[in-house]
Write a protein that binds this DNA or RNA. Structure first.
Lengths: 161, 161
DNA sequence: CGCAGGATGACAAGAGCCTTGTCAATATGG
DNA sequence: CCATATTGACAAGGCTCTTGTCATCCTGCG
């Protein structure tokens, strides 16, 4: 039973992917127990982050940016709205599709999350140098772009059925 | 609204985590469409990989190695057994808890998966050097170990209720 | 302007992943 | 030998996400 990239470079690429996956899972676990259960679910937090990063957006816009179905995003947004984390405001460009905006409560929640995460990150006792970290980041980004390759995007017409 | 690690190192660590997550998701998407839907689901593939890596194991052993509930792993194993990918063989050390072992069909399936993945990896057109990749792998591993910190493990007694 | 076709919100059914709780049968260790 | 723990099986339920369907709204084209 062979580990199958056959070139040294292939093996090294595979190792990076595996470690990236392991780190991601571990980081997610840390984040999970950091914000505890009671707060928002993972997917909701993702939408919240998008709203903070991108500003008010309609549901379909959020869905496109997230590469998942607009119906699902709709559910998440409705949940956030019900929880007072987001609100729907009139959209001057579209009467049927309101803009979703963070409420102050949503903003506070997000900032508390970021503060908790930042605290953990800043206190990690590591000897890693900023230069090494930047090198790793660059490698990871390049690999992601490679894997994105010629990716199709932006279709719609209800995703071509 | 601030991105909150306050030190340069914190920001660099955060960047690595974010890129690792992005790469992981992208790699998962590639793998997903590589093996197509008809085959096994993601979780089943994970168990299959564990079986190949670790050899015959009981369900509870698999669950502990995977940090998820034994009940869930049981379901996955039952599914694999039903699909002919794994088989249950008598366990000399435990009459009630059989060992789960890959069948030849399971092994073939796994090897086909690895071959497909290896082919994609080996053919990525990248200028990244093996040394850079190894550096990135080292950084990622170190960060994961940092985040594992003093992690509790191996509790049981039905997970302390 | 009028209208066809696309976009949007809402709802539903369903798949996959995972958890906790429970139960009966079996192991284990003192 | 017996209390305690483990194991397999089943159930209920939550979260994430998909696809399909509808009625309604919007937009662009003629």
């Amino acid at each position: 039973m062979q580990r199958l990239p056959r070139t040294p470079r292939g093996a090294a690429l595979m190792a990076v992917i595996e470690e990236a996956a392991a780190l991601h899972l571990r980081a997610q676990a840390v984040v999970e127990q950091l914000h505890g259960r009671p707060e928002l679910t993972n997917a909701c937090r993702g939408v919240l982050r998008d709203l903070a990063r991108l500003g008010p957006r309609t549901v379909p816009q959020l869905a496109r940016g997230r590469e998942c179905s607009r119906q699902h995003v709709q559910v998440l947004v409705n949940r956030l709205a019900a929880d007072g984390m987001a609100e729907l405001i009139p959209n001057p460009d579209h009467r049927r599709s309101p803009l979703v905006r963070l409420t102050p409560a949503g903003r506070d929640t997000l900032e508390a999350m970021w503060r908790r995460e930042g605290d953990v990150i800043d206190e990690l006792p590591t000897a890693l140098q900023v230069g090494e970290l930047e090198g790793a980041t660059r490698v990871l980004r390049e690999m992601r772009l490679l894997l994105e390759g010629a990716r199709p995007l932006q279709v719609t017409k209800e995703e071509q059925r």
